[in-house]
């Protein structure tokens, strides 16, 4: 009950100066929040775009990711682990958003979401095909084990094995094997869906 009343500080007005001054402490060094923000903003957005497929939503989720870093920075012993944490939060938020969208679409028209992925182009037929492909890929990723889906997304976003290991808390020596398995799983699911689609036609 007292949890609601323990907070004694008044809400603090945050300015850009505060963000610049904010530091994140690891056991080996002190990092400036500003540096992490500047250095990772575009990449976090890129990873999230790959997951959610909408720029505005990706930017919103990226802001949420950095807000969490600002508000409650984790305690790690190296900058690599800290950045790994950042992408762990980002991918969790991205897949959570996809799951919530999936739930919502049960009550809404599925076509509505397809429409969102459809981007205007000079050739509607090509765009429709591309939209269907994106929809398909995203559905498969949503059905896969979260770790495998994240591996594929992050690797495709240019993450090195060391970065993948830090983000997903895996041994770097196992990344190659796990990537092979994740790709095999993806390919198998894709083939099954294609077969099902062709049989339905």
């Amino acid at each position: 009950m007292s949890a609601h009343n323990k907070r004694k500080e008044s809400p603090v007005s945050v300015t850009s100066e505060d963000l610049q001054a904010k530091s994140i402490r690891t056991s080996t060094q002190i990092l400036k929040f500003e540096d992490i923000f500047n250095g990772q903003w575009d990449r976090v957005c890129g990873v999230l775009y790959s997951i959610v497929g909408e720029q505005a939503e990706a930017e919103d989720l990226a802001l949420e990711t950095f807000w969490r870093l600002y508000n409650r920075p984790p305690k790690y012993d190296s900058p690599e682990k800290l950045v790994g944490w950042l992408y762990r939060v980002a991918t969790n938020l991205g897949f959570n958003a996809i799951r919530a969208r999936k739930r919502r679409t049960r009550y809404e028209e599925e076509a509505g979401h397809m429409e969102m992925e459809y981007q205007a182009s000079t050739d509607p037929a090509i765009e429709a095909e591309r939209s269907a492909e994106i929809h398909q890929v995203r559905k498969i990723l949503a059905q896969m084990k979260p770790r495998n889906a994240k591996l594929l997304i992050l690797r495709n976003s240019g993450f090195s094995y060391a970065e993948l290991a830090a983000t997903l808390r895996l041994a770097s020596g196992s990344i190659g094997t796990l990537l092979v398995r994740a790709e095999a799983d993806f390919e198998k699911r894709y083939r099954q869906r294609e077969i099902a689609r062709l049989e339905g036609e």
Binding site: V14, T15, S16, L19, F37, N38, W41, D42, C45, G46, Y49, S50, I51, G53, Q55, A58, E59, A62, L63, F66, W67, Y70, Q119, R130, E133, I134, V137, R138, I153, N156
Partner: peptide
């Protein structure tokens, strides 16, 4: 196919920082 078709034009760091505030 999940990547943007064109070069992504995300919010600039400055704008993003204001939004974060």
């Amino acid at each position: 196919t999940l990547k943007p078709k064109l070069q992504a034009d995300y919010l600039t760091v400055q704008k993003a920082r204001r939004l974060l505030n």
